[in-house]
Design a protein around this nucleic acid. Sequence first.
DNA 1: AAACTGACTGATC
DNA 2: AGATCAGCCAGTT
Length: 116
Amino acid sequence: MMNSSFREAVWDVVAGIPEGYVLTYGQVAALAGLPNAARRVSGALGQAPKNRKLPWHRVINVQGKISIPRESRWYQRQKELLQDEGVVLLKGKVDLQRFGWKGVADRLMWHPPDEE
DNA sequence: AAACTGACTGATC
DNA sequence: AGATCAGCCAGTT
């Protein structure tokens, strides 16, 4: 049946992202069943029940960067969590379609920080 | 019920 | 590279 909400599907997908890996909002949306609902993912994450303890920080934008506004206190938090897991954010775009999860994580990790 | 809102994206300039 | 725009879609107003 189709009774589970997109929101819940998102939580399940995010809960399954392994440490050291990242997915984009669009990728999570697609895995959750709605390929064009990237924007909904952010809302779903913000609404996740506290007891779920999701690795919300493993979701970044397709540009390979953090989407949370710089002025938000969560921006720095997400950056720390990712760096603690060995994930280095790229400045350029990530080709998710072609590389998939592991490929994306590998690419993210072999690029040195702040590379032009 | 109609409008508004985003932790988005891809295209375009 | 950075700014702007138009689609996107369900939860909130």
